[in-house]
Design a protein around this nucleic acid. Sequence first.
DNA 1: CTGAAAGCGCTTACAG
DNA 2: CTGAAAGCGCTTACAG
Lengths: 338, 338
Amino acid sequence: MATIIDVASLAGVSTSTVSHVLNETRHVEPETKERVMHAVKATGYRRDVLARSMRRARTDSIGLVVSDAGEPAFADMVHGVEEAAAQNGLSLLLANSAEDPARENSAVEALLDRRVDGLILARAAGSHAGLLQRIREEQKPLVLLDRLADLDGQDTVDQVGVNNHAAMKSLVEHLTAQGHRRILLVSGDLRVSSLRERYDGFLTAMQAQGLDAQDALLCEGTATAAASFDRVRPLLADPAERPTAILACSTLLAAGALRAVQREGLRVPGDIAFATFDGFTYSDLFQPQITTVRQPAFQLGESAVSLLLRRLDKPSAPPQVLRLESRIEFRLSTGTTS
Amino acid sequence: MATIIDVASLAGVSTSTVSHVLNETRHVEPETKERVMHAVKATGYRRDVLARSMRRARTDSIGLVVSDAGEPAFADMVHGVEEAAAQNGLSLLLANSAEDPARENSAVEALLDRRVDGLILARAAGSHAGLLQRIREEQKPLVLLDRLADLDGQDTVDQVGVNNHAAMKSLVEHLTAQGHRRILLVSGDLRVSSLRERYDGFLTAMQAQGLDAQDALLCEGTATAAASFDRVRPLLADPAERPTAILACSTLLAAGALRAVQREGLRVPGDIAFATFDGFTYSDLFQPQITTVRQPAFQLGESAVSLLLRRLDKPSAPPQVLRLESRIEFRLSTGTTS
DNA sequence: CTGAAAGCGCTTACAG
DNA sequence: CTGAAAGCGCTTACAG
């Protein structure tokens, strides 16, 4: 491989000049510049990214750690991040914590070791409190994605998520407008900020409708489809007691709850209404057609990169919290009996 | 940040010794070794990955370029690659070509520039012929994933995909056993090896059943759900002429075809049978329940990393072609009328 | 068993 | 407008 020395000697200039031409970092006589560019072509020279990064503050790469690479919503976020990164000439280093805080920590350390210019994190449930502190002490630009930090009023970190409260409010209003009073919320692991927000939003919205928490059935802490199934099924047994609507806070939880509904021989929406966050692919093609709060996952990823670029540009700018709007796809599962 | 010099002087040894202790690359007196390790702790020293990579042949990173990061099957492959890479201490650089050969080329160049130890490629439809040649001339270890190369009998590159022929054969036999003769194949872009294999497998299997190509309806070249819809719908209009079964070769194609079926007011499987490759999430929870050839996408990703590691270990080993088996989920969409 | 020193391929003050 | 040279933080022959 040709080095900058080869180019310099072929062009009859110093390596400084070659470097400055390549980086456009100081004025070079047009004629000299052209000689350099010719030498670059002739030698097939390609700048060594590693050597370059070692000298500069930047590596032109960013790191992304997601909590569950297997979930479609996160896959879409990854997609969005990749797209935006590539468009800005940044390479993307991807890691998956699989909801394991220890893996999350080592993934972050590996990325810090590789000197990524910045980090985007969709943290694991139960993410270690020290992690953000650690990244801060490394002074590494950071953007939280989807799973945000509750920084007691202080926005000390850039974040982008969806407006869970608003979406939940619309959903609850939609259900109560149709007479539903006993609504089962399958809320999942409340250490996850997005799930916590949906949970809080639910309670607030119910209260606003004059329904207190007594009216609500709450399944907290369920983290898997199997757990969701196990928790939901017993609640459906007694026709007099059972909820008239189920609201699942993630795809996994929805899958478990829906299976419970089917195992109990109930029909959606005939016997029970059903809605979910995130949801299933191509919902409109299948029965039951399920009302779904669809996150703009791809855009979340893109926005995370935007925030990061802004932070790289202006390290001291005030932190920004972005809330994108989810779109609610109303379908027959919460409509009148078909 | 502490450097190796800080560690060396604190331990009272040379940087060589520190380096050798850290890399376990030559014998060091136990006592000396301990002094070094203490100094490492005391200084909070972390080896600079960039400087290290510059001196060594390896960067402990691999590059993955997928053709469509938005597709669930590819997302699962990414997941599998990440998992296996992390387990082997490799960082993963991810890029998406979005089925654009030009983007694919620049993604590969970016990864080569970053000196990844090896590349895993799920190539774009219409991938430039020169790409593999280019990677070979860089002598960069390469594994093809899912979208394999037809190397006229010569296996000159490591590859891992699924056994498309066998899966297609089972599917066709399943359909013909139920009396289907007019089967519509929505086959997609035949430049994509996996789709080509499914197409070829279909023709072979039909022939083996004594059905010639005349009996088959073939939709080639459709690359999107919309194209699939447009091509399929007219074929369903005439009850006397229409196929009795539809076989889609990807999720996207299935979505378009299924929409066409529904728009024509046909019922699955009452009016027409339906099966697909890849398919939809949680198919068992929804109607119609669609018979699906499920790729072991995660394992494909893992296997690609295995092949790459093997290649890194033994650069001159004979290339290996891995074919994993797909699992066919038989469901009501190809069963008797429900 | 260990060290002094060259060198990987760049960037960037410093000097003119 | 350009160049000589230091230096980024390591690894690794070479030497003893």
